[in-house]
Each structure stands twice: as structure tokens, then as C-alpha cells.
Design a binder for these strands. Structure first.
Lengths: 218, 218
DNA sequence: CGTTGTGAAATGATTCACAGCT
DNA sequence: AGCTGTGAATCATTTCACAACG
């Protein structure tokens, strides 16, 4: 018998960090890690790590900690990294090109299977071994190559239209770099990377540090 | 008399979105907006928006909604956008160059005041009107130009060392693009933009959609 | 009416405290 | 002693419900 439980969203965020650190420790030759040790490098409490991991069963050893090999395997499985995710990049401007050549993506099992751009001046050029394709071919190639993820690195004005086309073509997940919300109803998942919002929040935090908390009354 | 209250972290995240939408509506010629309307475009509930805004005083009008001009002004003030933030970019590889030329930053009051890179092959070149400077000049220029924010777009291995130098030089906020945690103790604020973690979470969400919730027992 | 502002209730996530294993 | 796993308590955030206003 198997039961289904909801995974708290913040936990998912952390699982990804756990896996990264587990990989790093394994590369260093370690064979095990305690929740305390993991928490220290990641800036989290040991309790939180144990709580997170306990959602997926018991794979720690009291008195010892967690063995890196099974922990890594299980995290990979949970995060869907026990397979290759074919990914399309739409928008091959400076940002798109940076994404295509971004080391960690390739290293972590995300395979850039196609790159598209609307600019005829870019179409035909090659970035990191990938030929930039015309937008006209988008639907055909997404479907032929069974591409499940799409990275949207086009200007804000074009983002929603691109998202619509990707989803219509069968993409199930969008990584959005444009500073706007993508509406895909229930047809896909969307994750956003929002530089300016992040920088703005940083400026806010710094303001607080400089000025203390916000005054409610002036 | 004035009292100080803590601002919930999730609220800060949203304030930035509110401001962006307010600006967009104003550019379109609108003069007011209701929490309902705002929520619809941003994918949030109207109650949440009102709760968020109410933390900073009452500036809506019952029966009418919020006037865009005062709302925008107040948001800008809260977020620390009523001033120019001089910002340094460290790491002028593809990602760094994409960041430097990223439109929304400039448009939103963040001024790139200096660009550094450790690669002698890049030093002296110009990106978007900015000369890439040698790392040797970092401390001097940060201090002379009173740069308060630093963007870290170097490889993971170099990130912590760069962060240390920036903070020592007087930077108060770091926007970190490297897939690692930056330890700055209490000397600065850090915000991270973590592409791979985001993509991993997206893959996880898609897995859920494909496979349903995680099985607790196999 | 439609809309804001806000206490009160509900939900969600983290931390505490400790039993139990090695 | 050092560690995990977890129920219970606490803390944080969202949603509800509705009074007051234009």
C-alpha cells in the first residue's frame, strides 16, 4: 500500500540544495554527512533538514548520519533527476546565450535540445555547438524531439506569446526569465527567474539595514 | 510618534511586483486600480494585496481602489527606489555581460558603476559602454564611487572570495548568481539567483504533474 | 453596489523537546 | 556520546468575514 502526501513548497527548494551539497561532499571523497553538518554549510537548522528528509522515508542512521550514496540517489529520484530533461531555449540574445553556455545546467542533467530566436540575424549562427533555429520550426522540433521543458529568455513583450506556443507544442514546464507573469492556466508548470525583482528586494533589505524597519507613521 | 513593525518577507517579494504593474498601468494611461484587478494580473488574491499594502498605511479609497500615482510613489519609497543604487558587477563572462546589458536593471534605477573581471583577456574591453576593469582596482573603485551593491557573476569556486572582497570594500548588498551560499556573516545582505536550483524545482513540479504526488512507501 | 481595511480563524512551516537507536 | 525521527508547540502567513466608506 502506498499513501500520497503533499510536499511543502519550501522543502522542494531545499531538496535541490541538499543534492548539490551531497554531490560536492561525494566528489570530495566523503561517505556520510550529519544533518548538523549539512545545515551548517547551507545555513539551515539540523531539525529542518531531518524533517524535510523524513517526508520521503527514513534513510538516516541514528548515531551516524546519512550515507551520501543512498541519500543522493533518493534525492535525484525525488527531484526527477533520474532522467534526462530535454530543454528548448527560446531567445538567443545575450541572456539566452549565457543560459546555453551555463555550466551547471549541462552538468546537472538538463540537455539543451534546441535553441530558437525570432531575429533573422541570429538564425543560423551557432552557440556552444547549438545552431540557432527559426521560430517557424518551433512546434515541429518540440514535438519531434519530445522536449518537455522550455526556457523563455525573450523580452517581456514577447514572453507570453512564446509561452503560449511552447505550451501548445507540448512543453510541460517553463523557466521564465522575463519580468512578467506567464499565464498558462493548468497546462504547464512555470518557474520564474526575476533578476530585477530580486535586485529590488536586495535594495529593500539594504535600506532596512541602513534605516531600520519601515516607519508606519511618518 | 512612529512605531516600527516587521514586514513579512513574502510581502516584500510582492511589493516589487505591485510596483512593476503600477508602472505598467500608468504607462498605459490608467489612473487607478483595484486590489481585485491587480490580483488578477499578478495571480494573487485581492485580500492579500490589501493586507500587504495596509502594512504601510491606508492609501486606498473604499469603493474606488488605489490611485496609481501615490501608490507608485509610496512603493518606490518603501523599496528604496527613491534613489540611485550604484552597483558593481564582478565577473564579465557571458552571464556578466548579459546582466550588464539587461534592460530592466537600468530602467529601474540600478546604475552599473563598475565592471570587474579576473581574466586579463577581458580586462580593457568594453561592454555596453562599460570598460572591464582589473580585479586589482576593486577596493579602490568601490570605495571611491561609493558603490553599495555588488553583483557576483563568477564561477562557483571564485564566488566566496569575491564576496569577501566586496564586503570588505564596503558593499552592503550582494546579488549572487553563483550556485553556492555566500557567507557574509552580518556584514551585508545577500540575495541569490540560482538558475539550476530553479530549473530543478521546475523539473520536480513537472514530475509531480506526470506522476502525481510522491509515494511515501514504494 | 463595489471596494478598502482589518480583526479573527485557518492554514502552513519551523522549531522544540525528547524517545530511541548505534 | 552522537545522531535520527517525530509528535507537540510555536510562529508566520494567508484567507475569511464583515464593518465602514464613497
Amino acid at each position: 500500500m502506498s499513501s500520497r502526501i503533499p510536499i511543502p513548497f519550501p522543502t522542494v527548494k531545499r531538496l535541490s540544495l541538499y543534492l548539490r551539497e551531497v554531490d560536492r561532499l561525494q566528489a570530495r571523497g566523503d561517505t556520510r554527512v550529519s544533518s548538523r553538518q549539512l545545515g551548517k554549510t547551507l545555513g539551515l537548522t539540523d531539525t529542518q533538514i531531518r524533517k524535510d528528509l523524513s517526508l520521503f522515508g527514513q534513510f538516516g542512521q541514528a548515531g551516524i548520519g546519512y550515507l551520501l550514496t543512498p541519500l543522493g540517489e533518493r534525492l535525484r529520484e525525488i527531484l526527477g533527476k533520474d532522467r534526462v530533461w530535454r530543454t528548448a531555449v527560446v531567445g538567443a540574445g545575450r541572456l539566452g546565450q549565457a543560459i546555453i553556455s551555463y555550466g551547471p545546467f549541462a552538468r546537472e542533467g538538463f540537455q539543451i535540445a534546441a535553441v530558437f530566436d525570432a531575429d533573422p540575424g541570429l538564425v543560423g549562427k551557432t552557440v556552444e555547438g547549438q545552431e540557432i533555429l527559426s521560430m517557424e520550426k518551433l512546434e515541429e522540433i518540440i514535438s519531434d524531439h519530445q522536449i518537455l521543458l522550455g526556457i523563455v529568455s525573450v523580452p517581456q513583450e514577447a514572453a507570453q506569446a512564446v509561452a503560449d506556443r511552447l505550451v501548445d507544442a507540448g512543453v510541460l514546464g517553463l523557466l521564465n526569465f522575463a519580468p512578467t507573469r506567464l499565464d498558462v492556466a493548468d497546462r504547464a508548470s512555470v518557474a520564474s527567474v526575476d533578476f530585477s525583482s530580486r535586485l529590488e528586494r536586495l535594495a529593500f533589505q539594504v535600506s532596512l539595514g541602513l534605516k531600520g524597519m519601515i516607519d508606519v507613521e511618518e
